[in-house]
Design a protein around this nucleic acid. Sequence first.
DNA 1: CTCACCTAATTTATAATATAATATTTTTAA
DNA 2: TTAAAAATATTATATTATAAATTAGGTGAG
Lengths: 241, 241
Amino acid sequence: MARLENLNLSQQVTNELGKAIIVGDYNTETGLPTEAQLCEVYGISRTAVREAVKMLAAKGLISSRPRQGIRVEPADNWNLYDTSVLKWLLESSPSLYVLKEFLQVRLAIEPQAAALAARKGDQAAIAEIKMALDKMQAAADEPEGVMHEPDLAFHTAILHASGNRFFYQLRDFIRTALHVSIQHTTPAKGNKQAIAEEHFKVYNAIVSGDPERAKNMMTYMIDEAMAFIEKEIADKEAAAQ
Amino acid sequence: MARLENLNLSQQVTNELGKAIIVGDYNTETGLPTEAQLCEVYGISRTAVREAVKMLAAKGLISSRPRQGIRVEPADNWNLYDTSVLKWLLESSPSLYVLKEFLQVRLAIEPQAAALAARKGDQAAIAEIKMALDKMQAAADEPEGVMHEPDLAFHTAILHASGNRFFYQLRDFIRTALHVSIQHTTPAKGNKQAIAEEHFKVYNAIVSGDPERAKNMMTYMIDEAMAFIEKEIADKEAAAQ
DNA sequence: CTCACCTAATTTATAATATAATATTTTTAA
DNA sequence: TTAAAAATATTATATTATAAATTAGGTGAG
């Protein structure tokens, strides 16, 4: 077992089993080994195994009942918005296709969040957006990668400014999506100045209280990334033939 | 403790503690009692308490470390898309305001899902939508409440037809939102025939492969519910003064 | 007196073992 | 052949013990 320091035993086991389930080593057909077997495999006590099982059950990956053992739940029931589950999924799937799904969700959420921020975002929240934007603009002349963190902060700040807990809750999801996204898109689009400019337009629409424009600008930005990814997928599929 | 049959001990404790945290009985300042104290309070073993703690930790509500005890995480970290957490939240908050937040999320997700379904929904998935729609139309002449279940099925089927796992994952969230929503709106709008008609228009746009229209029709439908809720909130606030 | 180090105390983390509950399978008896 | 009963396997719960981690307090060197 990969001994990740900093994580306790049951968390480590949770990680191992979680990944194994998502990668398909265990599935709804096979189920998981019994608690006793898991103890042997990992060389740990039942206490630790059971705690891992409970955590995975809380994330919707498994369920366990007396005599029946530990079952793997259908993938439809997995809590994909759980940060760990998301991480395991990304480690196991070809990221281009997952990335497209990510972008579809961003295309739904972020323009709406930007519109809400423009309509009723409070001063402090909008100032947060501005701060992230400033850092982005400052990073435009810096080396590759410096703009990454303020970029994430910008999008997170908008979710926060939407004033809707459910949007803000998706910040880790969006951060992950953006992180993967940037790895794919940045090499191609070298013009960091242009990126900062686009972000500025979104901010400008928000600060001047124009929901429609904020929504449209955000849609435009994400749509650009989507077009890029779709092209990349098309190229890849053409190359495969 | 409310002895919900059908749930095991640690699940019951998870429920109790989860509700108590969300309602504010325990907060980031106070933290939770120690494991030992919880054992006494509930009259159960440490095993059960610890399993509950692990489940709540997996849902982002708490974290626990040696010597520090069990801490309540800031509300921003709670996994609101977890069905249990959502349920606890609804039981503790005035539902009108939560409902508005629900509708804002639906307004982001569902039109986009409908558009995707129109663009690339496969036969089987679209047939599912049709089936739900037929049941809705059949229920239009039935007594109050009969239309409820097919209505939920209709919206779920569209999420499914979007072909995006992350959208479909939100089905429980949307179901909850719709469930709460219907309780507020149905009494006012008696015309079930009109509701079925609107749903038909969404379906029609999807089956004829018109993403834009599918999106617009869905937006229109949810927007209507939003207008209703906003009016209700306004009335309530006026009455309170 | 101050600071680094050591010690003690508290709480969760892990382990080990025992018993209960539950659901499946096998056996038994009508 | 079928229905009831017994055996069995597995998780659920309880109990006890020990380890590890973190905080607080004390102690001694400088």
